[in-house]
Amino acid sequence: MSNLKTKPNLGDPDGIYQMLIDLHAGRDEQDSMKVNAKLILALANHIGNQQVIAEAIAIAGAGAQE
């Protein structure tokens, strides 16, 4: 039973993508890593559902698909 939304769910994907890239403008790698971590933590807290987060983690960790 999947709880994670796997169908497109965003009205403005390009805009959100841009926001993510902009967040890292001018930062070194270490700082970027930390900022990403903050972002993940904030989103995880918002989602508030361990199952959904576990599924997202599984997708993230699955590696490149052929």
Partner: peptide, 21 residues
């Protein structure tokens, strides 16, 4: 690891002003 430290520091930096952290 570097990454593990990034998460740890992220939590500590957020915690002061963000209850959720």
């Amino acid at each position: 690891s570097v990454l593990s430290r990034a998460f740890r520091d992220a939590v500590l930096e957020l915690a002061k002003h963000n209850e959720f952290a």
